[in-house]
Every structure is written in C-alpha cells, then in structure tokens.
C-alpha cells in the first residue's frame, strides 16, 4: 500500500462528490428532514423519539454510503477507469482505503449536521456522549460502503445497483431490533438478527441512549468493525487486475 496514492484517491472521490452538489444536499438534507419529521410524528412520546432518532443516526450513514459506493464503484467498473487504474501502480488496498477515507469525511459532515439539528434543536439525548454516536455512525457508514462495494460486483447496471438496497438493507432494518425488540422475535428471526451487522450498530446506539458504556457497547463496535473488514475482503476479491 502507498499512502500517497490512497490519499490522492480519497481526494479524487471527494472532488467527484463536491462536483455533485445535489447529492451532497440530499445526503445532508434528507436525514435532517426525516429527523425533524420524526420529532413531530412522536410529539407526544419523547422516549420513542429518543429511541428511534438515535438508531437512525446509525442507519442513515449505512443506507447512504451503501448507495453512493455501489453506484460509484459500478461506474468505475463499467466506464473502464477501474481497468485503467489496475494498469497503474495503484494497489487494491489504496483504492479501498481511498474510498473509505473519502466516505468517512462525508459521514462526519452528514452526522455532524444531523446531530446539530437533533441534539441542539430537537432535544434528542445521548447520555453516553456524542463521541460514541459518531463512532457508531462512522462504523455504520463504512459498513454501508463495504457492502456497497461488494454488491456492485453483482450489478451490471445502475438500476440493478439501486435495487440491491432493499434486498441488502431492508431485511437488516426489519430485524435490527428497532421495530420489535430482538429478544421478542421467534428463534429463527433472532438468529438471523444475530448474524446481521446492523443489529449491532443499533444495539450499540441503544446503549448510548441508556448512558451505559460497557462491554456490550465495545463488543458491538468490534462486531461491526469485523463485518466491515469481512465485507471489504470479499469486495476486494471481486476487484480483479486480470479479467477474461
């Protein structure tokens, strides 16, 4: 790996995003708007707003980075830039780290703005501290990126890439414990929930809401990180220097 090339790649990806102001506006405005909507939908039930609002801070980055990465990587594959990059000294890891850095920066902006609105104006509360919220949101974003990278290998068009979102993300959303506590699910669903990474991000944010920084919270972060590494490794295996 060559840090200068990884940084150049991160810079390039950020420039591409910066040249697309509408996507940036949507990345920030959509979750902010949803958070405001949620606050007033649960106007009479602040506990419910706290529970769902905090979980959403982990779910938004996952969904958005999944979409952005799967489309961006599909473009690299279909426009020939990926093949061209692989004739240069760029290593796979440079590419992955470059994308990860760029999307980490993007996530900080996204979560920063949404947090400002949620904690500063809407009265959302994170007793364990904002640093934990940011850490879990960043982990979710990188998980979304890694899953998007992996699924982009199975999509031939941008239409297909977008359709992978409901296929990959919605089951995790249904089973992550936000709609029904995982302990109340039937065994099969609970087992399924146990192997889906979003469950751990949402569980971690629940700890943050309860103000408990304990082994479970640390374990949740470790599990999500492990899933990022696993998905990235599988995704890297789909990036081939030589193709037929």
């Amino acid at each position: 790996m060559n840090p200068a090339i990884a940084l150049a790649t991160a810079w390039r990806v950020l420039r591409q995003l910066r040249n697309d102001p509408r996507t940036i506006a949507l990345l920030v405005a959509a979750p902010s708007g949803l958070m405001i909507l949620l606050r007033y939908v649960y106007d009479g039930s602040p506990q419910t707003f706290d529970r769902i609002g905090l979980s959403l801070l982990g779910i938004f980055p996952l969904v958005t980075m999944f979409l952005v990465t799967s489309v961006a990587m599909l473009r690299e594959r279909t426009t020939g830039t990926l093949e061209r990059l692989f004739t240069t000294r760029l290593a796979k890891l440079d590419l992955l780290v470059g994308y990860a850095l760029a999307f980490a920066v993007t996530t900080c902006v996204q979560v920063g703005v949404v947090s400002l609105i949620a904690f500063g104006w809407l009265g959302l509360d994170a007793p364990a501290g904002l640093a934990w919220v940011l850490a879990l949101a960043l982990a979710s974003a990188l998980l979304g990126m890694a899953l998007g990278l992996l699924t982009s290998a199975f999509a031939a068009t941008e239409f297909q890439a977008v359709q992978f979102l409901p296929a990959v993300v919605l089951p995790q959303f249904l089973l992550c414990g936000l709609l029904t506590p995982r302990s109340q699910m039937v065994d099969v669903l609970r087992w399924l929930s146990n192997v889906l990474p979003m469950s751990y991000a949402v569980e971690g944010l629940a700890r943050v809401r309860q103000g408990v920084v304990d082994a479970v919270l640390i374990r949740d972060l470790v599990v999500v990180t492990g899933c990022i590494v696993l998905a990235l490794a599988l995704g890297a295996a789909t990036l081939r220097r030589q193709t037929s």
Binding site: T9, Q16, N19, G80, T81, E83, T88
Partner: peptide, 27 residues
C-alpha cells in the same frame, strides 16, 4: 506503461485538470 482504452476512461464528473492531477499521482 501508459494505456489508453478505446472508450475514454476518465472521470467525467471531474475537471480535466483534476483528472490529470489524479493520474499524475498514480504514475
């Protein structure tokens, strides 16, 4: 090796200079 594919493989959402700057960093 400098390789130019048949269909232009550059980033269409970047400026000409940003494309060149990136490929300069790679080479």
């Amino acid at each position: 090796i400098g390789y130019v594919t048949q269909a232009p493989s550059v980033y269409t959402d970047l400026s000409v200079r940003d494309n060149l700057r990136y490929f300069a960093a790679l080479t």
